[in-house]
Design a protein around this nucleic acid. Structure first.
Length: 912
RNA sequence: GGGCCUGUAGCUCAGGUGGUUAGAGCGCACGGCUGAUAACCGUGAGGCGGAUGGUUCGAGUCCAUCCAGGCCCA
């Protein structure tokens, strides 16, 4: 008789090899066909909502590792919240306006005359194309959401909402217009937002210049790295608290800060000098000096931003060309001079240098200073300098009329700070970060001199140039834009937006504003999407650390101004994806790894598993070798599922708890602990703890311990024996728990497992159509048995020692397979001995050996609590269960079987 | 230059309120099994805890400084 046919080997069609790339595509098709997202929403329609508001990625290319990572984190959260019973609508968004797309399109249409219509149409198409591409790519990651109904910042309805936010800001008085220095790219001919600057080292002229005073022998020494801003000089700033020396060199006297004097004089190579006197900066306020280039007189002012760390302690002030200069200038009512045009060339306001590009004019200015004998030192100097993030051109500060949002209006800053305290920031330090950003930020420059964006709906009187910032005009613009999109603003004549005449000059004709909104204004108003659905504020926003200055902050500002409350209750921040060497992934470094490539090769579940293993609160190095370990981890999880499924193929009767075997009760206890640990890790958004707990459980508790021990019981015991059914009862519990706990992380594989469960197993579940409609398992306090757990801690410690002894015996060739062994134990401590005696009957199976007895023999190995001796097992090996025993052959029909197996054959009616 | 963050074995992570020889899992090496089999089991080798000082009887854990890296800002 072939006894192999009489044992219950695992049986399942769940394949060992996943072939994820192909299988995931099929599962995806199935989800689409059955409208899974809708089904899930339907299943939760009466439940409490959990609003996850999506931050819109920029629609100008394929997704990169960072976007994939962000999406996966979001999706794990969405799926988890759904599985604890919330209704979680997820409306994905896309950010479509802005310079990168505009520039890309201009490049593409090079040579063509770009009317607004042509340009905007091309931009729309460009953005639409990538919205479509990214949508596919995101869906491929297994992300659930309303993909048929996303929010898109270039949709007319969305644009109208943005305009409406602007209207409220105007009503509440937050908006003002002012000439003001802004970072200006002379190549893109546009003002840049703070977010668009890129600091790089640059070589500049570093010059020391004497500003002569009314006393022809006395000069104030200043230091600057931007000689071209000297024509716009209107003041010298000194620090009121610093000490200034009057340094006498021959007949000449120079005013230099005491702390900097030595360094400066050494640089100027001046050794012979004396200090005539020393005064505190404050005493020099109002001192008159002569402009170094032109024939005019200006005054000394005071400012605490003047530092004693570099320069001379005297700072040349040009409010038209520097932000700090501008701020000091405000308090002294200094004129804002900015004689530079949009391409960075001097205007006719400075005839001496008219038409010269400012950076080229540096040398002319230095020459002019030399002629006037005011230049004392000229050298090159390397320092960090802002560049345009797109075209990498060094930027200048240039004063232009702009629209601003006043941050200190209606105590906005203060209110923000108060609200920040109440919001749940994860991780906690993220609060400090946003706090500093809000506290330190200047007014928000809303306007951009660009074309691809939402127009700022303001008119100017054709006659007197008075700006008409009027809610009626804005409302009309909003309504037209809602119907026709932003193009409506450009296509309609000005008169369509206004009925009244200019309040100043009564002129009837108007010119439309050409500027558009900063893109942060577009995306910062995205909470209007959830507001329109009556889901304001969001429960959670989740983006990378860079968004403390980006989307988080701008969304927050716009909701705090217009709604007067925050748009989110909690904010989750994640680190950025870097390469293996912790360097930023960028095309120029050639270290970019595309998520799409990874998915094609390995599947989305592998990528998701990889990201879930990592503590995302800090930056994440992405490396393909690391991905390999995810593949290996995945195999372990998959094989665990396969083993569980295979051993449950004939399971139908659950064994009640009081009849379960002791080891099985123990596993119920441990499963409960796992469920608790995992649930709390999910709740605290610590996905890596979810991953590590589950994975360790699968390897340590299951594979290496429980499942290994169980094989004998599952395979060789009677089909319907209590021992076997008891084990299956636990395996079922474990299977159902694991598949649910892992569903948010590996949605495809768990779905595959779930389908296998519902199709093939006769388990008592409600059988939802998808694992993602199920609820997470709840920990059952009845399953906790601390006494048992304590007993088994000792047993496992002994087991570890037995394994060591078995390994030693194996090395001595006493045994090969552990079933060939007999384990003899002895404990000097009587309590331990009694304990062993009490558990003796289950010890062979726990050690996976054939025999165990307790007695004192010679040559025992010494372990901490017990002594162990390994010997060859007694008797013969049973052909069926492979366990060695002395009662082989008690039946004439089955000479090679042990009596246990003979009984099993009878029980299971194998012709005995 | 400022704000915030990170730095424990090759990799991913653990290490309440400072206290015995710093723990897992994977990988690696060696071995076993051939009834989870492109699986499974066992054993072993890997850590000057970014660096240097300090507090303390005692620090990966507290403090200071520095170094390296990241993001944001000047």
């Amino acid at each position: 008789m072939n006894y192999k046919e009489t044992i219950q080997l695992p049986r399942t069609d769940f394949p060992m090899r996943a072939n994820l790339p192909e299988k995931e595509t099929k599962i995806l098709q199935n989800w689409n066909q059955t409208q899974m997202y809708k089904q899930i929403q339907e299943s939760r329609k009466d439940n409490k909502p959990y609003i996850f508001h999506d931050g819109p990625p920029y629609a100008n290319g394929h997704i990169h590792m960072g976007t994939a990572f962000n999406r996966i984190l979001k999706d794990i959260t969405v799926k988890y919240r759904t599985m604890v019973g919330y209704r979680v609508p997820f409306i994905p968004g896309w950010d479509c306006h802005g310079m990168p797309i505009e520039r890309e399109v201009i490049k593409k249409l090079k040579g063509k005359i770009l009317t607004n219509e042509i340009l905007r149409k091309a931009c729309t198409q460009f953005a639409q194309k990538f919205v479509g591409i990214q949508k596919e790519e995101f869906m491929r990651l297994g992300v659930f959401g309303e993909w048929d109904n996303p929010y898109i910042t270039m949709d007319p309805e969305y644009e109208a909402r943005v305009i409406n936010v602007f209207k409220v800001l105007v009503e509440k008085g937050y908006v003002y217009r002012d000439k003001r220095p802004v970072h200006w790219c002379t190549s893109c001919k546009t003002a840049l937002a703070e977010a668009e600057l890129e600091y790089k080292d640059i070589l500049s002229s570093s010059i020391y210049v004497k500003f002569k005073t009314q006393d022809p022998n006395l000069s104030i020494l200043i230091w600057t790295t931007t000689p071209w801003t000297l024509p716009a000089n209107v003041a010298i700033a000194l620090n009121p608290k610093l000490q200034y020396d009057f340094v006498k060199i021959g007949n000449e006297k120079l005013v230099i800060a005491s702390d900097l004097k030595d360094i400066v004089l050494e640089k100027l190579n001046i050794k012979d000098y004396e200090i005539e006197k020393s005064v505190v900066g404050k005493e020099l306020e109002g001192m008159i000096y002569k402009h170094p280039l032109f024939d005019k007189e200006c005054k000394v002012i005071l400012s605490t931003f003047v530092s004693k760390d570099s320069g001379t302690g005297g700072v040349h002030i040009a409010p038209g060309h520097g932000y700090e200069d501008y701020q000091v200038g405000l308090s002294y009512k200094l004129p804002v001079i900015s004689p530079v045009d949009e391409s960075g060339c001097f205007t006719d306001e400075v005839p001496e240098f008219e038409g010269k590009y400012v950076f080229d004019a540096n040398k002319d200015i230095i020459e002019a200073l030399k002629e006037k004998e005011t230049l004392v030192c000229d050298e090159e100097f390397s320092h960090s300098y802002p560049h345009c993030w797109r075209c990498k051109t060094p930027l200048i500060f240039r004063a232009t009329p702009q629209w601003f949002l006043r941050i200190d209006h209606k105590n906005l800053r203060e209110r923000c700070v108060n609200e920040i305290e109440k919001i749940n920031w994860v991780p906690k330090w993220s609060k400090e970060r946003i706090l500093h950003n809000i506290l330190d930020r200047p007014d928000w420059c809303l306007s951009r001199q660009r074309r691809w964006g939402i127009p700022i709906p303001v008119l100017y009187c054709k006659n007197c140039d008075t700006p008409i910032l009027d809610t009626k005009v804005i409302e009309r613009a909003r309504d037209i834009i809602k119907k026709e999109g932003s193009m409506g603003w450009f296509e309609h004549p000005a008169k369509d937006f206004i009925e009244t005449a200019c309040p100043k000059c009564n002129c009837q004709e108007f010119i439309k504003e050409k500027d558009i909104f900063d893109v942060w204004f577009d995306s910062g108003a995205s909470w209007t999407v959830i507001k329109a659905q009556d889901s304001f504020p969001a429960d959670i926003y989740c983006e990378g650390v860079d968004h403390h200055r980006g989307w988080f902050q701008h969304s927050f500002l716009l909701s705090m101004t217009t709604e007067e409350k925050p748009c989110f209750k909690s904010v989750l921040t994640h680190g950025l994806i870097l390469d293996k060497e912790m360097k930023k992934m960028s095309k120029s470094l050639g270290n970019v790894i595309s998520p799409t490539e990874i998915i094609k090769k390995y599947g989305a579940d592998i990528l998701r598993l990889y990201f879930s293993a990592i503590d995302y609160t800090c930056d994440v190095p992405f490396d393909s070798d690391g991905l390999e370990s995810s593949v290996i981890a995945y195999r372990r999880l998959r094989n665990t599922f396969k083993f569980l499924l295979g051993n449950l193929h004939d399971f139908e009767t659950i064994v009640p708890k009081d009849k379960l075997l002791e080891l099985d009760k123990l596993m119920l206890h441990r499963l409960t602990l796992l469920i608790e640990k995992v649930t709390s890790a999910y709740e605290n958004v610590e996905f890596h703890k979810v991953y590590h707990s589950i994975y360790n459980y699968c390897t340590t508790d299951l594979s290496k311990f429980y499942l290994d021990i169980l094989k004998d019981r599952l395979y060789t015991y009677g089909k319907n024996s209590l021992e076997r059914r008891s084990a299956q009862t636990i395996l079922q519990e474990i299977l159902l728990s694991l598949v649910k706990l892992l569903a948010p992380i590996i949605p495809f594989t768990t779905e595959e497992v779930w389908q296998n469960i519902t199709n093939n197993l006769k388990l008592s579940t409600n059988n939802s159509k998808s694992i993602h409609i199920e609820l997470l398992p709840k920990s059952n306090p009845d399953w906790i048995d601390n006494k048992l757990a304590e007993d088994y801690e000792l047993i496992q410690e002994i087991r570890d020692n037995v394994l060591l002894a078995l390994e030693a015996a194996r090395n001595k060739k006493i045994i090969g397979n552990t079933l060939e062994a007999k384990v003899t134990l002895w404990a000097d401590n009587k309590d331990t001995r009694d304990f062993l005696q009490q558990k003796l009957s289950s010890l062979p199976s726990i050690f996976i050996v054939s025999q165990t007895n307790i007695e004192k023999v010679d040559n025992m190995s010494q372990f901490k609590k017990i002594n162990i001796f390994i010997d060859k097992a007694e008797g013969k090996r049973c052909e069926r269960c492979w366990i060695w025993s002395k009662d082989i052959g008690t039946s004439t029909e089955h000479l090679t079987l042990c009596s246990k197996c003979i009984n099993v054959l009878k029980e299971d009616n194998y012709g005995c």
